[in-house]
Lab assay of single mutants.
Amino acid sequence: QVALSRTQVCGILREELFQGDAFHQSDTHIFIIMGASGDLAKKKIYPTIWWLFRDGLLPENTFIVGYARSRLTVADIRKQSEPFFKATPEEKLKLEDFFARNSYVAGQYDDAASYQRLNSHMNALHLGSQANRLFYLALPPTVYEAVTKNIHESCMSQIGWNRIIVEKPFGRDLQSSDRLSNHISSLFREDQIYRIDHYLGKEMVQNLMVLRFANRIFGPIWNRDNIACVILTFKEPFGTEGRGGYFDEFGIIRDVMQNHLLQMLCLVAMEKPASTNSDDVRDEKVKVLKCISEVQANNVVLGQYVGNPDGEGEATKGYLDDPTVPRGSTTATFAAVVLYVENERWDGVPFILRCGKALNERKAEVRLQFHDVAGDIFHQQCKRNELVIRVQPNEAVYTKMMTKKPGMFFNPEESELDLTYGNRYKNVKLPDAYERLILDVFCGSQMHFVRSDELREAWRIFTPLLHQIELEKPKPIPYIYGSRGPTEADELMKRVGFQYEGTYKWVNPHKL
Rank of each mutant, 00 (worst) to 15 (best):
Q258E: 09
Q258H: 02
L262M: 13
L265V: 10
C266Y: 03
V268T: 12
V268C: 12
A269I: 06
M270F: 08
M270Y: 03
E271Q: 06
K272W: 05
K272S: 07
A274C: 11
S275P: 03
N277T: 13
S278H: 10
S278A: 10
D280I: 13
E284F: 08
K287R: 12
K287N: 11
K287H: 10
L289M: 08
L289D: 02
L289I: 12
K290F: 03
C291K: 14
E294K: 10
V295F: 09
A297M: 14
A297C: 14
N299H: 14
V300Y: 13
L302V: 10
G303D: 02
Y305A: 05
G307L: 07
N308Q: 12
D322W: 04
P323N: 15
T324Q: 13
V325R: 02
V325W: 07
T333P: 04
F334H: 07
A336D: 07
V338T: 13
L339S: 07
L339N: 03
E342G: 10
G348W: 02
V349L: 02
I352Y: 06
R354E: 00
C355T: 12
C355A: 13
G356T: 00
G356Y: 02
K357I: 05
A358I: 06
L359N: 03
N360W: 00
N360R: 05
R362W: 06
E365Q: 06
R367D: 07
L368M: 12
Q369K: 05
V373H: 06
A374M: 09
A374C: 10
D376K: 10
I377D: 09
I377P: 12
F378A: 06
Q381I: 11
C382S: 15
K383H: 15
N385R: 03
L387A: 07
L387F: 09
V388M: 00
V388E: 03
E395F: 00
V397F: 12
T399P: 01
K400R: 11
T403F: 15
K405D: 07
G407M: 06
M408H: 13
N411G: 13
P412D: 03
P412M: 10
E413T: 13
E414I: 14
L419W: 04
N423V: 12
N423L: 09
N423H: 11
N423Q: 13
R424M: 05
L430T: 15
P431Y: 11
D432C: 12
Y434T: 04
E435V: 09
R436G: 07
D440L: 02
V441T: 13
S445L: 15
Q446N: 03
M447N: 02
F449N: 01
R451G: 04
D453G: 00
L455A: 05
T463K: 00
P464V: 10
H467A: 14
I469L: 11
E470G: 11
L471P: 06
E472F: 12
P478F: 09
Y479T: 02
S483Q: 09
S483P: 04
T487H: 14
T487L: 15
D490R: 07
E491N: 14
E491Q: 12
L492E: 07
M493N: 10
M493Y: 12
K494R: 10
F498M: 15
Q499V: 12
W506V: 03
